[in-house]
C-alpha cells in the first residue's frame, strides 16, 4: 500500500501555490498586452507618420488635459497647452490631436501663428474607448514634440443606434 502511494504524483502545498502563481502571471500578461488593449493602434501610428513624415518626436513641452474618468465619451473637454514663447522666430505651428482607440484616429489640427499669443486650445471631443490620447505639435523650427494622457471611458461614443 505504501509503495503504491509513491507512484502517485504527490503535490505539496507550496508547489501547488507556486504553479497557481505562475498562472496568475500569464493571465496578467495577456491583460496588459498592448495588441489587445489598443486594437486600433496601427491606424493611429499611420496617422502620426502622415503628420510627421517619419521625423523624430520628442517627449515634453506639450500638456494634454482630459478627465481621467469619462462617463460619456460623446463630449469630453480636451485642453492642449504648449510651452512656447510664441515669438516671431519661435512659435507653435500646428497642434495635432490623435486618439489611439477611435475609428478615425485624427481628432483635430489647429494652425497657430505668432499672433496667437499663447498656445492653448480647448475643444470637446468624442472618445470611442478607454485609451491614450496624443497631442503632436510642430514648432516653427520643424521639430515635433508630443504629450499624452490616458483616460477611462465608461460609455463609448459611436456605438449607439439611432
Amino acid at each position: 500500500m505504501k509503495t503504491n502511494m509513491n507512484f502517485l504524483p504527490r503535490m505539496h502545498r507550496r508547489d501547488w501555490l507556486r504553479s497557481i502563481q505562475k498562472l496568475g502571471f500569464i493571465a496578467l500578461g495577456s491583460w496588459f498586452s498592448p495588441s489587445l488593449v489598443f486594437a486600433k493602434k496601427e491606424d493611429a501610428d499611420e496617422a502620426i507618420k502622415k503628420i510627421t513624415g517619419g521625423a523624430m518626436i520628442k517627449d515634453g513641452r506639450v500638456t494634454l488635459v482630459i478627465p481621467p474618468l469619462v462617463e460619456n465619451g460623446n463630449l469630453v473637454v480636451l485642453t492642449v497647452s504648449v510651452d512656447s514663447p510664441m515669438t516671431a522666430n519661435d512659435y507653435v505651428k500646428v497642434i495635432h490631436v490623435v486618439a489611439e482607440g477611435n475609428p478615425y484616429p485624427n481628432i483635430f489640427a489647429a494652425y497657430l501663428s505668432p499672433r496667437s499669443g499663447t498656445a492653448n486650445i480647448t475643444t470637446r471631443v468624442r472618445l470611442a474607448d478607454s485609451q491614450r490620447v496624443l497631442a503632436i505639435v510642430q514648432m516653427s523650427d520643424g521639430s515635433f514634440w508630443q504629450g499624452s494622457a490616458e483616460t477611462f471611458v465608461t460609455l463609448s461614443a459611436c456605438t449607439e443606434m439611432v
Partner: peptide, 26 residues
C-alpha cells in the same frame, strides 16, 4: 482679424456635436 487669417483648425469625426473651440490671439 481685419482680413488677415490668424487661426485655422481642421475638424475630423472625433470632434463632438456643436463644435466648440477656444483659442487666443493678441
Amino acid at each position: 482679424y481685419n482680413n488677415v487669417e490668424i487661426f485655422k483648425a481642421d475638424f475630423f469625426s472625433g470632434i463632438g456635436a456643436n463644435p466648440l473651440i477656444i483659442f487666443t490671439t493678441i
